[in-house]
Design a protein around this nucleic acid. Structure first.
Lengths: 344, 344
DNA sequence: TTGAAAGCGCTAACAA
DNA sequence: TTGTTAGCGCTTTCAA
């Protein structure tokens, strides 16, 4: 059906090897190259990548494994990967692992069987994702967003601690003082890192203003911290709980976007509004600019995460034997109206 | 590096053909099959899919081309495709065409070169997307959401007209009378179909209540219709324009989710609120339940669109030679608070 | 039921 | 610079 390199060779009166050279940048005289190109165009020839992969033992496809294709954070990341890959004519195969380690393992096996050129993986689990199979076979791998335990691969991460510190410092600068924190589950690295950033900022402030200590409960960084589940309902419950305390906070730093939605609802139910009560979401909310007041957020470098991972992967694929890298990307604070200050 | 079928054959003391039969359901005595399986497990053997594809001339990968991976409508569709494909052990390669016909064409060529088993495409353009290359080579193709002009492929579409008619009828039933419509660009099939549904519902109502005609401008279905661009700003401008008219509407049917966001803002700026002023969005808005009042929407069958397309594709792939199908899937009205009625 | 052998379409080593 | 040749790993006749 489709024409092969042999057909083109015959039509152009040259050997298959010459046709191959024309398509792969080998040395061919201009005149013959032209003849080949014309014949190829006439026959609608396009090299069969399957045969090429089999012969060269490498594909021009990279696999991208993400836990949730419906999460904008990951789709933006996928765009970054795609754009970077396109520069070297790599195609990207997107695999949705659904936060399921088994499904993820199956896709990893597919990547091996398909001889993919490399794999970028946002691990379904830091504990249980196992990249050793790929490593054993020498397949280039880059982990992104989460670093799977015990794996020897390049990693690209978000600087959660700095982002949280900046965000909290911003709220302090805008005049909020009694800032609470709703973070994710205890033990999850992202929760812990974001909480740590918040604590650093509060600690720094208290050290700079020792006179202020009297305004706070015994230990604000623990009294006003709640561990939730990164989901809407968890954020709602945590916020309601914080508001019920005798020393009520005047602002809240929420460690992810879904919990921020829940916290917003709890505030509204308590008759509180931003910016009198400050609220800031770690992680973009698509409709952040549309709610009123618009929501201040920490923007995650999702696109760049993908772009960077793809670049690292291509380095590895080209056989550069440099030591393993961990790249940490910074977040960006998007100041909007929900943190204008308690008196604004 | 990775072990081949030959390695397994040697280890099990059989021929490569026998190993192949074990993995593909050929006739092999139980005892030898067992030996082969053991050897394969020991060597960590998994058949090389590239070689298999080259030999059999077909792959176990299908391509899914979508215009915008960051649009929840398409990611939900992708989930549907993926889930359906998984049932027959097909992998899905997701390609983001970015509403760009050239990029789309490149991906279509990749699909051919990679010998993919089939392609599902949400066309970047109804006019300019060209599937004839694939058709010429006999590759199974299903078009989804949009029917590219001049192509002979199975199609899965959304029933825009019925969905809009239902939605408009719902608003009428809730007591809104002066219902405006903001639709997409003139000429786009989705705009026209949604507008047509709105007109049908209004027309039916007026025919059933001829006494009401006096309450309306000369021709409500044209006076209160605005063509916008399916974007936030377009919706905002159209709504503001409608509100400036002497015969002000008391509700609006908005033909997509982004324009609904713009329309909401225009309403708020004019001091109008739902449900006194009714508003309904065609197409789900992720935060529809979270705004107050919660937004009534028409839910598109995005997941099922994908699932159905994948099923049709698999029929085609298995060589069933049935006539071309067009499947039209119905929408579902999600009634929330923004259309409780003008007196609610 | 089994194995030997051919060949899918391509590239790369080698020889000319 | 060009062509010849071998072979990537698999499946599928064909003959035994």
């Amino acid at each position: 059906m489709a024409s092969t390199i042999q057909d083109v060779a015959k039509a152009a009166g040259v050997s298959a090897a010459t046709v191959s050279r024309v398509f792969n940048g080998g040395r061919v005289t201009a005149e013959r190259a032209e003849r080949v190109r014309r014949a190829a165009a006439e026959l609608g020839f396009a090299p069969n990548r399957v045969a090429r992969s089999l012969r060269t033992q490498r594909a021009s496809v990279i696999g991208l494994l993400i836990p949730d294709i419906e999460n904008p954070f990951f789709t933006a990341m996928a765009r970054g990967v795609e754009d970077a890959a396109q520069q070297t004519n790599l195609s990207v195969v997107l695999c949705n692992t659904d936060e399921d380690v088994d499904k993820e393992r199956r896709y990893l096996e597919v990547a091996l069987a398909e001889q993919m050129a490399g794999v970028i993986v946002a691990a379904a689990s830091r504990e249980r994702t196992d990249l050793s199979l790929l490593e054993a076979r020498g397949m280039p791998v880059v982990a992104v967003d989460r670093r799977p335990r015990g794996s020897n691969v390049d990693v690209v991460l978000v600087d959660n601690a700095h982002g949280s510190e900046d965000a909290t410092a911003h709220m302090l600068a805008r005049g909020y003082r009694r800032i609470a924190c709703i973070t994710g589950p205890q033990g999850a690295s992202t929760s812990e890192e974001r909480l740590a950033g918040y604590r650093t900022a509060i600690g720094d402030f208290l050290r700079a203003h020792p006179d202020r200590a009297g305004e706070y409960p015994v230990d604000p960084v623990t009294e006003w911290t709640r561990f939730a589940d990164f989901k809407v309902e968890g954020g709602h419950k945590a916020m309601a709980d914080l508001l019920a305390r005798p020393e009520r906070p005047d602002a809240v730093f929420v460690a992810n976007n879904l919990m921020a939605v829940g916290a917003l609802r709890a505030l509204r139910e308590a008759g509180l509004n931003a910016p009198e009560f400050g609220i800031l979401s770690f992680g973009e909310v698509p409709w952040a600019p549309m709610v009123s007041p618009s929501l201040t957020t920490v923007q995650l470098p999702s696109y760049d995460l993908g772009w960077t991972a793809a670049s690292l992967l291509q380095d590895r694929m080209s056989g550069k034997d440099r030591p393993l890298q961990t790249v940490v990307l910074r977040t960006a604070l998007q100041v909007r109206d929900s943190t204008s200050g308690p008196g604004a």
